[in-house]
Amino acid sequence: MYNFESFTLDWYRELFSDTRLLIIVLNTVVVALLSALISTIIGVLGAIAIKSVKGRRSKNTLLSLNSVLIVSPDVIIGASFLILFTMAGVKLGFYSVLLSHIAFSVPIVVLMVLPKLMEMSPTLLDAAYDLGASRWNVLTKVIIPYITPGIFAGFFMALTYSLDDFAVTFFVTGNGFSTLSVEIYSLARRGVSLNINALSTLIFIATIFLVIGYYFITKQYSKSGMGGKK
């Protein structure tokens, strides 16, 4: 690492010939996409449910329950999920990681979708009902299109949270299953080695692309009036 002689792509070659690592990358991506998708569905339904709650008190209770997983430290989330999965008999591995990623992404999706839902004028719904729309029609033709920017923002946030997470995954991943951040941690504990550097560069580039994608998607929808985000 410290004796620089010339540029080389050897470390990238080594990286791509390491099948174990490629499987881990694949795991990470699959977990991220699946958890983002499922948590987006649950989160959108949850946001609609929170909005339909009438009482102010119960709404506030729901909102604070919602934010518990956002404010609590990762270590506590990880430890409590470890207890939960062990008690419930879920084998530590792919499913426990997926479930916990879904669990901590749901509140973020709710927080991204709820503002859009709140700013939607109730007259829109009344108009739809007056024109004879069924509840299902109202949901798919009026509510969902209106909150789409929020849904996309929530999905991307869930995706980045899942890709980014180390602490919770570290607790609930058993032997045999590993995601990228857990793998980097165990490599880094052994000290500096150059294929981690190569890997980091690739992850950095992927992150930048993700951010650019997120930026353009929100920008595209901001023309149809997505305020609040600077």
Binding site: I42, G43, S52, L65, V68, L84, V106
Partner: peptide
């Protein structure tokens, strides 16, 4: 609202109680 309610029950309330 069921999925969301289940989520609160299983992943918010239960872990705290278990800890």
């Amino acid at each position: 609202a069921i999925p969301y309610a289940l989520w609160i029950l299983i992943f918010v309330v239960a872990p705290i109680v278990l800890v």
